[in-house]
């Protein structure tokens, strides 16, 4: 992280101010991100607390006036990969590059043009969309959260995730297709007309 090269020497009062005014206002968004990554409330709590304490420990590498939210999200994402994904009991994921290559093929693009209508979304008043989101592979889930829920720009996402902008764009496109596919399955199982 290039920002880390510049070290500030904040006083305790400045640290407290940055923490209160820049870090704390993002705590709900950060909790949601932690929850959507771990899918467990207890793990999300631990991940959030670890991230905030880490952010405080490294506060001297945060530049005042830069995007605190993106800085925090990046720390959370890295903590998740380094500390939680390894510990996680779920079976190891398929190598992501394989998945990406598969979903990037035009073939798949044609297959997944889900038949979903706005009207059937109107009936999803429960947890359908949340469950659909949670069912996606973590890398697809992540880009949807960052973009559609948190409103990050592609460039910010590329920095948070350490991937090129082109990959952000294509991963988002696949992720949205997969989400629609899931929603369309729900719509069918609920008996709504999809076409």
């Amino acid at each position: 992280m290039e920002e880390e090269l510049i070290k500030n020497n904040y006083t305790d009062a400045q640290k407290q101010e940055i923490f209160d005014k820049e870090f704390m206002p993002n705590i709900n968004a950060m909790y949601n991100f932690a929850y959507r990554l771990t899918l467990e409330r207890d793990d999300a709590k631990d991940l959030l607390q670890d991230t905030y304490l880490k952010a405080f420990r490294f506060i001297d590498s945060f530049q005042k006036g830069t995007n605190a939210k993106a800085w925090l999200f990046r720390i959370l994402k890295n903590s998740f990969i380094n500390d939680y994904r390894k510990k996680s009991k779920e079976p190891s994921k398929v190598d992501y590059q394989e998945v990406e290559a598969y979903y990037n093929s035009e073939e798949v693009d044609r297959q997944i043009t889900p038949d979903l209508r706005v009207e059937s979304l109107g009936n999803m008043i429960g947890d359908e969309i949340s469950n659909a989101l949670n069912s996606l592979d973590v890398d697809f889930r992540t880009v949807i959260i960052l973009c559609d829920l948190e409103g990050f720009k592609y460039e910010e996402m590329a920095k948070i995730l350490d991937i090129p902008i082109g990959t952000v764009r294509s991963r988002l496109h696949r992720a949205r297709n997969l989400l629609k596919e899931k929603l369309s399955e729900y719509a069918k199982s609920m008996g709504y007309k999809t076409a």
Partner: peptide, 18 residues
């Protein structure tokens, strides 16, 4: 559809920290 999905995501997929 894109607009509706984004609305639904924002309405249904946010969580407050305890």
């Amino acid at each position: 559809l894109e607009v509706a999905i984004r609305d639904l995501l924002r309405k249904k997929c946010a969580n407050q920290a305890p």
